[in-house]
């Protein structure tokens, strides 16, 4: 069941990056039950969700070049700084669409009644993200433009 949960998010990441930004994926790593601390690779967005069986969050953490390339492909404009408002808005909406896609599938299949909180997006210098006392799966995804990481944390079960 847990595998089903992170598999659903991985599928959404891969398909939506392809559809929205034309970004293909070279390699998808095996899910790691990381937990603890992870340093952001550049820019990260977080969408929290809660429902009648589980609650959790979906983090998508990208290297600068991946994020800037994704934004350029979606918006048609090249930005060179992750702190640009349109970069922050685009990465945040992208995660909203990815999480929305996964949550829709989980709700339809498992009756989880999940709803999303608005997305959070952040960038900074050596930002460390902490996660503890929850189940967590980290999946590294390599693309021709660099790497991104999907971190799904949750409580409860499907």
């Amino acid at each position: 069941m847990e595998e089903k949960l992170h598999r659903t998010f991985v599928d959404s990441v891969v398909s939506i990056l392809k559809k929205t930004a034309g970004l293909t994926v070279d390699k998808i790593g095996a899910p790691k039950e990381a937990g603890g601390q992870q340093t952001s690779q550049g820019i990260a967005s977080v969408v929290s969700f809660s429902g009648n069986k589980i609650k959790g969050r979906c983090i998508i953490d990208m290297e600068q070049e991946v994020a800037l390339d994704v934004v350029e492909n979606i918006m048609g404009t090249r930005y060179d700084n992750l702190k640009e408002l349109m970069v922050l808005y685009t990465i945040s909406e992208l995660n909203n669409i990815i999480a929305g896609d996964s949550i829709t599938k989980l709700n339809n299949e498992f009756g989880t009644g999940l709803r999303l909180a608005p997305p959070v997006v952040f960038t900074g210098r050596k930002v460390v993200m902490y996660s503890s006392q929850v189940k967590e799966a980290t999946v590294d995804i390599d693309t021709p433009k660099g790497s991104l990481r999907l971190i799904i944390a949750w409580e409860g079960s499907l």
């Binding site: 999480a99 929305g100 829709t104 709700n107 339809n108 009644g113 709803r115 999303l116």
Partner: peptide, 8 residues
Amino acid sequence: LSAMGDKD
């Protein structure tokens, strides 16, 4: 036009 589209 929504990110969410479950049956409910």
